[in-house]
Design a protein around this nucleic acid. Sequence first.
DNA 1: GTAGGGTTAG
Length: 689
Amino acid sequence: MSLLPSSSSAGFLRGLEINEAISQSFQSLKQLKHIHGALLRKNYDQDNYFISIVLRSALNFGDLCYARLVFHQSREPNVNLWNTMIRGLISNDRFSEAVDFFRLMRKEGILPNNFTLPFVLKACSRVTNAGVGVSAHCLGLKIGLDGDVFTNSALVCFYAKCGFLNDAQKVFGEASDKKNVVSWTAMITGHVEHGRFREAIHMFWGFLGAGLRPDSLTIIKVLSACIRLGDVRSGEWIYDYLTENNLRENVFVNTSLVDMFSKFGNMEKARDVFDMMPEKDLVSWSTMIQGYAFNGLPLEALDMFSRMRQDNLTPDCYVIVGVLNACARLGALEAGERASKMIDRDLFLENPIVGTALINLYMKCGCVIRAWEVFMEMRVKDKVVWNAVISGLAMSGHAMLAFSLFGQVEKIGLKPDGNMFMGLLCACTHAGLVNEGRRYFEGMVRIYSLLHTVEHYGCMVDLLSRAGCLDEAHRLIVGMPVEPNAVIWGALLNGCRLHRNIQLAETALKEMILLETWNSSNYVQLSNLYSVSQRWDDAASVRSKMNIEGIQKLRGCSWIEVDGVVHEFLVGDETHPSTKDIYSKLKELSKYLKEAGYVPTTEYVLFNIEEEEKEQSLSWHSEKLAVAFGLISTAPTAVIRVVKNLRVCGDCHEAMKLISKITGREIIIRDNNRFHSFTNGFCSCNDYW
DNA sequence: GTAGGGTTAG
């Protein structure tokens, strides 16, 4: 088969025909080599134009050895051939070889042209070979390439990417006639990537002031600066600007906007942007799911996930991490496990982020052993993985295991961080180990040079308060270098409730009211406290203050998962489709409870419920609605899993024990990360007050 | 044949 004309044809015609044969895109490397062979046979082996075509194709196929062979065949490679080789190496991610090739080119005495430096500078910025980049810059100045727009932009990009922002600014500022969207974006990106978010946003204003129109890259970068800085005002202004200027077509831009609004906690706006997107991809869905999960809207996250599935999209590990977080928050074990089966198990073992999400799910659902199994199987374990297990063990009451894991962390040479000490302090709290807690709290600063955060103080106050060291806890709060928050005072209050210290409880509640003026439960508790102390006037004034400020009491709410489906209940809820059955089951339960000798108690001091509501709340609390629903559900093997966001109060505890005994079903209630498992009249919770 | 090449996770 003759692919090429014979060399006896006229040169011009010959060139055209060969060009035609060689310009076709090659289907395979084999075909390319075949044509290359024909070229050699016809004595075109020194024609740099043909060589460059073969070279480019070889590089496109990624056969670098072959490309080098072809290149070195040329006895006098011209600058085009050198450029082709450097560019090809870059497109194959061989940046340092590209830099070496440039060096070789200089050694051979070849001068670069306007195409060369942009390639070389790109390679230098990728391997941060500042030396070669800077000498390329000097060479460019010497031979007058600094007037070229592309070379100039490439220089700005090079300096910005290497972190030499002042030099980037210098090259950028000196070339006012060569500034374009690429060099502006390079400056903005450089600032963002080196943590100078405020400057990045400032540059963006300058960019707009110069009358230029941003493209998707510019927008994404400046939005990421707004997100990192938490600059809601600039973010929203940019959002309006994009809307007014029809710049909301690009899926990356829209996804960044969704991400921005969810990071700012504005899920309504995030949803708005998401719903309006002309095109959605897996990342957009994943951003939305994570946004809901992160902002404490786990049911919405799961709803998004099921919509995504209806759209026939297959989840990736980002999506699954979001879903697992939502499930962990809900305690929705079955739903979480089902989602986890949608991606390759190896991802859990090799990707520490994905593995951590699964460990958290199991830990939050009280399945310590399964969490442990995942941990043991994981092949890549970083600090956060260890933290997840240590905190999980701590919250499940396995303090000693948590301590011994901490010992292993030190052995394998990982440096503990503040989060790890949170886990350890939490373990101490759950096991009531006051001395160990004091030691870790003090040691994290003395031995590991870490700083105490508000959270560490919170944990320590909790530990001391529960153990009855109320004065020490109070002193710790008063001596804090940062302002104590409501959680810290709440921990002290909790201790006061346990150890019946009404005086300190009053102090704590007053502080909490100052910090959380909107939170009804603080007022209710303070008023209850005054009532039991028979300080009726004080009680009345708290009530009237609450009324004057129009503070509404939050309704108790709980979720239950039965066979992987999550249901939500509010106190006195009547909106569930099975309401009638649920209430009739509740009536039946109440009858059984009465017969079993259960009398609701109303005299608990400092409960977070109004006095007159106590009896009703205790008998008709949303947990019981959920339990009743679990009992009437037809699922034959369903474990009733009630996940509450309120405290499991003492009275309800007794009721649950009886319900489990009467019905023979297992009931699991989660309360502030503690699990209460009721089976056959017993509770396996180790930390019940 | 040239410069920035992108949004999401614990």
